[in-house]
Structures are given as structure tokens and as C-alpha cells.
Nucleic acid binder design. Structure first.
Lengths: 242, 242
DNA sequence: CGCGGCCTTGAGAAATGTCAACTTACGTGG
DNA sequence: CCACGTAAGTTGACATTTCTCAAGGCCGCG
């Protein structure tokens, strides 16, 4: 696991992006709160890092020394019980912030689903920044309340909805999130594995597989590698409504 | 439901408490961020309200005009699906803040479990306050991140733990919360009904009842009216650990 | 004393989990 | 370039947990 601790430095495609002014997800990220004239203050404390698929870069229960903003790729966030049971608490995508829900230690682990690039902020320096810039703190707080809304909806999803409803809601939510960062499409990319979806929805991998198969059999979706295509918008939406 | 909209004005026991300086839960609440010399600014925008048992004072999907800080009693927060399925997302106790997870409308409903008193803040005025007082915003942000940690733990609880583990974790969590505001005790007060516990834990009322009976049969707890007494600390803790 | 709300208990049903086999896709090395 | 090995996904049969429906008990209040 040594390689987990040694991030590959920024990879080819974005290797030239070293300043926040030219960041293409800035408008989505917490960084949008900073005025163009303040961006150098972010540049001063940020470190651009990349992680290859499956590498774990946040370890539950370890001291929280850094916070992150995702710039490329998808990150899986999860909590683990001592006996191995796992709950995926979210998938972070470009523009998302990692490090809201923490005290002195991380309350979750995080690893790269595919290749990922992140802006890494030392927590002390980040803390100083939010103390100096109330508008930045405000933006962070908005991110936190938004996360809280999502978390509460997830409680309802896991606590009260059927497997079929959970999958439908998951697919629609994923499409909504991709819509913010890519062009809309009937094809919903699912870069994560079935087991991640299962652990996110409080189901087993078999139930996820069977339920997706059922949705496909019912011609609601079409299953394709690493994605699904929506065939029946109406019935999918009806399932989400409950 | 007209009475829901007309809060009983502050009841006997606390009727004299009209200034924040003499509030006995201030240290626990968001208000602790305000310096004594600033308390008049809170007094200027707060309205003390009381609600009798079962009255609903926040309605899901309605415009969010106010936020609240609980000063007495227990509040049940919940989301409802169109077909009546309900998920209790939390119980708010003295010192807790209501109104973090909202955009323009409330994402949940709230009602008084027993008699409750609250500080009510107009949202516009509250917003102005957090804009003027970064240290107050900071405190609010800490409350939000703490809520987020709780919410993520709840996802794990509902998604991955057995009925027995959920009840054990619930009891221990309730005890921890009472410990902040009352003297410690082996008796854990449970002012809410079984159905609320069920809807909080993603179970049915029958499963809650059966599981509590089982814990009592196993001599882990003793069931008493509106409370349980812990008999076997060790086994309860073992269930929580998973 | 009787009613209604809340809780408990039981029996059977349903949804989801478990275990195991099989399929598919893909990368590696012969 | 093919064959094998491995990881991921699917499917089936069966087990288990939790839910559902129904009945009965407890208790406070009018």
C-alpha cells in the first residue's frame, strides 16, 4: 500500500494546469467564491495531485491533515465496520469538496474509482483561508448544507424504499450529476462497480444485478458496459417518485 | 390544523426568559458563538415560541421563512413520501439548531414530541446576522459538519446493520445526547413513540417492539415507561461496535 | 367503567441476503 | 495471436430477516 501514499504527480492531460485561474471546474467548486483577484491566494496553498484507479488517499480514522477538491474523475467515499461491512456514503465528482464531515480524524475513507485529479489543501492553511475570507466560508457552508440535504434524502432512500426504487433514484441522481459537468445524454455513465452501487444503496451486489436486469427486462433501461441507457423516462421517474 | 400555525406563547416555566443572557442552553446552542456584548443583537431578532405536544411547526416543501434553536423538549424531524412512507431524519433536543438543511423550502417536517420551546429567527434577519458575524457563521458551519457526520453514521446504521444493532446504537446515542443536557443516568429517556424510533431506524414498529423485548429478555436492558434502563453495559456496547 | 391510543405478540408472507455455479470481459504471457 | 487466469457480473436455489396483517393486552383519561 506504499503507492497509496505516494500520489502520481499530475498526469499528462492536465499537467499544465497549475493555476486556479485556468481551472475548468472552478465555477462548480468551492473555489468559485474567490474573486479572480484572490485566486493567487488559493494557488499559494493548493497542491495538484493525481491518483490512479483504486488508490486510497483518505483513510478512515486517520488524522485529517488535508481537504480536497475533485477536478477530474470519480471518488468513492465509504465507511467500514470492523467486520468488513461497508457503506458507501457518496461518490464525489469534479467540483465536489472532500473534507466537510470531519473532526480531527477522517470519518470515512476515499479512493479513486478511475484515474482522479484533485486539489489538495493543507487543513491548517485552508482553515486560515476560511477565517480570513468569510465569503469563502459561506460557500463552504452552502456546500455543507447541500451535502446534508443529500444525506437526508439518502436516509429516506435506504430506510424506506424498495430495491427497485433505490436503483431508479440512483440512476436519475447520477444523470443529474453528470449533467452539471458534461453534455446531457440518455446514457448514464456508471464508472463505479456493482459492489459500490450495492454498498451505496444498502443492498447486496446480487440484488443490484437482479434489479438492473429486471429494469432492463421491463424495457426501462438498457444495460451497456459501464453505463445504462434510459429507454422509458416516464416509468423511471415514476419509480423515483415512489 | 389551525392550532399548528398559532404557537402557544411561552409557557409558565420559562415565561420569564426573554433575554439570551439568561438562557440556560446558550452554551450548547449556536448562540454560544456570540460574545456577551453581542447578545442584544440576538435578542433583537429572536422570538420565543412554545408548541404543545404533536403540533407541527415546520412543514416539508413549504417556504422556509424561519430557522429555530431548541431550548426545551424534543423535536421530531422527518421526511414523507407521497404514499405516506416516512423517514425520521433526527430528533432535535435543547441546544440543537433547525434549519441547516434547506434551500428555499423546508426539506423536512418538524413537530413537538412533548411540549417544546424554541427560539425562532426570521431567516432574512438570521442571514444578515451570519453575514455580519463571521464567527457566528463559523459556529453554524461547525453545527452543519457535525450534523453531516451524524447523517453519514445513520446511513451506515440503516444500510448495513441488523435491527438489534440499530436499536443498541440508537439507545447509546440517545444516552449520549441526554448526557450533554442532564445528569448521567442508567435510565435512558425515550420521549418519542415506538413508531418514531421505527421510522428513524428504517424498521417497522413491530420489529422495534420485538427487538426491544429480545434485548430485555437477554437482560441487556429493562423496559420501563418512556425509557429503558441499561443492565448490561458491555453487551450493549458490543452490539454498537458491530 | 369503558374507550382509545399505544404497545406487544403471533403466524404467515415477502423481500432481500447467502452461497454457489456459471458467464463474460479483459489483460498477460506463452 | 491465442490461451489462460483473474476479476466482475449474472443467475439460480435456498435461507433468513424483516414486514404484514391480525389479535390481544395495557394504561390513562373521561
Amino acid at each position: 500500500m506504499v503507492e497509496d501514499l505516494l500520489p502520481i504527480e499530475v498526469c499528462s492531460r492536465r499537467s499544465e494546469v497549475t493555476d486556479c485561474a485556468s481551472c475548468d471546474v472552478r465555477a462548480l467548486a468551492v473555489c468559485a467564491a474567490m474573486a479572480p483577484s484572490e485566486l493567487h491566494e488559493l494557488d499559494a496553498i493548493v497542491r495538484h495531485v493525481a491518483h490512479g484507479a483504486k488508490s486510497t488517499f483518505i483513510h478512515q480514522d486517520e488524522e485529517a491533515r488535508a481537504v480536497f477538491s475533485v477536478t477530474k474523475g470519480v471518488v468513492r467515499l465509504y465507511k467500514t465496520l470492523s467486520d468488513g461491512r461497508r457503506q458507501v456514503i457518496g461518490f464525489a465528482m469534479p467540483g465536489d469538496f472532500l473534507g466537510l464531515a470531519l473532526h480531527n480524524r477522517y470519518g470515512f475513507s476515499a479512493d479513486a474509482v478511475g484515474d482522479v485529479t484533485l486539489c489538495r489543501f493543507d487543513r491548517i492553511e485552508f482553515d486560515r483561508l476560511i477565517t480570513d475570507k468569510p465569503h469563502f466560508l459561506r460557500r463552504l457552508h452552502e456546500f455543507a448544507t447541500h451535502e446534508l440535504v443529500i444525506a437526508q434524502e439518502q436516509m429516506m432512500l435506504i430506510g424506506r424504499r424498495s430495491a427497485e426504487e433505490r436503483l431508479a433514484a440512483f440512476l436519475v441522481a447520477m444523470r443529474g450529476r453528470w449533467a452539471r459537468i458534461t453534455t446531457p445524454s440518455v446514457t448514464i455513465q456508471l464508472p463505479m462497480q456493482r459492489i459500490d452501487i450495492a454498498d451505496y444503496l444498502g443492498l447486496t451486489i446480487e440484488t443490484v444485478s437482479r434489479t438492473l436486469t429486471k429494469l432492463a427486462r421491463d424495457k426501462v433501461i438498457l444495460i451497456v458496459p459501464d453505463a445504462v441507457r434510459v429507454l422509458d423516462e416516464g416509468r423511471l421517474a415514476a419509480l423515483v417518485r415512489g
